[in-house]
Deep mutational scan, measured.
Amino acid sequence: ALNRGDKVRIKRTESYWYGDVGTVASVEKSGILYPVIVRFDRVNYNGFSGSASGVNTNNFAENELELVQAAA
């Protein structure tokens, strides 16, 4: 299972961040479909780089994520 702070690569092909590595911000335990919230260094097309207006978190299912580096 994934944990907060883990570095993960995104495998959801239609995602803006496909192939990117993000950090797990939190994992919901309530049984929702996309329980893993991942935070990225770059914002998506809703904002400009360096601006706070873009979105830099997204929810994924565990099977859409590949663990790159476990949290220390």
Rank of each mutant, 00 (worst) to 15 (best):
A1Y: 13
A1D: 07
A1M: 12
A1L: 13
A1W: 13
A1T: 13
L2K: 01
L2A: 04
L2H: 02
L2W: 06
L2N: 01
L2R: 01
N3I: 14
N3G: 12
N3T: 14
R4M: 09
R4A: 11
R4E: 13
R4W: 04
R4G: 04
R4V: 13
G5P: 00
G5M: 01
G5I: 00
G5E: 01
G5K: 03
G5Y: 03
D6I: 03
D6P: 02
D6C: 10
D6N: 03
D6H: 02
D6R: 02
D6T: 03
K7W: 07
K7D: 02
K7M: 10
K7S: 06
V8R: 00
V8N: 00
V8E: 01
V8F: 03
V8A: 02
V8W: 02
V8S: 01
V8I: 01
R9K: 09
R9Q: 04
R9E: 03
R9C: 11
R9L: 12
R9N: 02
R9M: 08
R9I: 07
I10E: 01
I10S: 01
I10G: 00
K11R: 10
K11D: 03
K11F: 05
K11P: 01
K11H: 11
K11E: 03
K11T: 10
K11Y: 05
R12A: 06
R12E: 03
R12P: 02
R12D: 06
R12H: 04
T13V: 14
T13K: 11
T13H: 09
T13S: 09
T13L: 12
T13W: 11
E14G: 13
E14T: 14
E14L: 08
E14K: 07
S15K: 02
S15W: 02
S15Y: 02
Y16I: 05
Y16S: 05
Y16L: 05
Y16G: 02
Y16T: 03
Y16P: 06
Y16Q: 05
Y16M: 04
Y16E: 04
Y16D: 03
Y16A: 05
W17T: 00
W17S: 01
W17Q: 01
W17M: 02
W17G: 00
Y18S: 04
Y18N: 03
Y18E: 03
Y18M: 03
Y18W: 05
G19Q: 09
G19V: 04
G19L: 10
D20C: 13
D20Q: 07
D20W: 10
D20K: 10
D20H: 07
D20G: 04
D20P: 01
V21F: 04
V21G: 01
V21K: 01
V21H: 02
G22Q: 02
G22L: 05
T23W: 08
T23K: 04
T23S: 04
T23M: 07
T23G: 00
T23H: 04
T23Q: 05
V24Y: 00
V24C: 04
V24Q: 01
V24M: 01
A25S: 10
A25H: 12
S26C: 14
S26R: 13
S26Y: 13
S26Q: 11
S26I: 07
V27L: 06
V27N: 03
V27H: 08
V27T: 04
V27A: 02
E28K: 11
E28R: 10
E28M: 14
E28W: 06
E28T: 08
K29L: 11
K29E: 11
K29V: 09
K29T: 14
S30I: 07
S30C: 08
S30V: 09
S30M: 07
G31A: 12
G31Q: 13
G31R: 06
I32Q: 13
I32C: 13
I32H: 10
L33C: 11
L33G: 11
L33N: 09
L33I: 07
Y34M: 08
P35H: 11
P35K: 13
P35V: 13
P35A: 11
P35C: 15
P35L: 14
P35N: 14
V36Q: 00
V36H: 01
V36M: 02
V36S: 00
V36R: 00
I37N: 06
I37M: 13
I37F: 07
I37G: 03
I37Q: 11
I37C: 14
V38N: 00
V38W: 00
V38D: 00
V38K: 00
V38P: 00
R39F: 13
R39Q: 10
R39D: 03
R39S: 08
F40V: 01
F40L: 02
F40G: 00
F40E: 00
F40Q: 00
D41I: 11
D41E: 14
D41S: 10
D41M: 09
R42T: 06
R42L: 05
R42D: 05
R42G: 05
V43R: 05
V43Y: 15
V43P: 14
V43Q: 05
N44R: 12
N44Q: 14
N44G: 04
N44Y: 15
N44F: 15
N44E: 11
N44M: 15
N44W: 15
Y45A: 15
Y45M: 15
Y45H: 15
Y45W: 10
N46G: 09
N46V: 07
N46Q: 11
N46K: 05
G47R: 03
G47L: 05
G47M: 07
G47D: 15
G47K: 05
F48W: 07
F48R: 03
F48C: 15
F48Q: 14
F48D: 15
F48I: 13
S49H: 06
S49N: 12
G50I: 06
G50R: 00
S51C: 15
S51V: 09
S51R: 03
S51G: 10
S51W: 06
A52Q: 13
A52G: 10
A52V: 10
A52M: 09
S53A: 13
S53Q: 12
S53N: 11
G54T: 04
G54N: 04
G54K: 05
G54V: 05
V55R: 06
V55K: 06
V55T: 12
V55D: 07
V55G: 05
V55C: 15
N56W: 09
N56Q: 07
N56Y: 11
N56G: 04
T57N: 05
T57V: 10
T57R: 05
T57H: 09
T57Y: 13
N58M: 14
N58A: 15
N58E: 15
N58T: 10
F60T: 01
F60A: 00
F60P: 00
A61S: 10
A61G: 09
A61C: 09
A61V: 03
A61Y: 09
A61M: 10
E62F: 14
E62D: 07
E62L: 12
N63C: 13
N63W: 14
N63K: 07
N63L: 06
E64M: 01
E64F: 03
E64A: 01
E64G: 01
E64V: 03
E64S: 00
E64D: 05
E64L: 15
L65H: 01
L65D: 03
L65Y: 01
L65W: 01
E66K: 03
E66W: 04
E66H: 04
L67Q: 03
L67G: 01
L67A: 02
L67I: 07
L67Y: 04
L67N: 01
L67P: 03
L67K: 05
L67M: 05
V68W: 06
V68Q: 03
V68D: 01
Q69W: 13
Q69V: 08
Q69R: 09
Q69P: 07
Q69N: 09
Q69H: 09
Q69C: 13
A70D: 08
A70S: 12
A70F: 10
A70R: 15
A70V: 11
A70P: 11
A71Q: 07
A71N: 08
A72F: 13
A72H: 11
A72P: 12
A72G: 14
A72N: 11
A72D: 11
A72S: 12
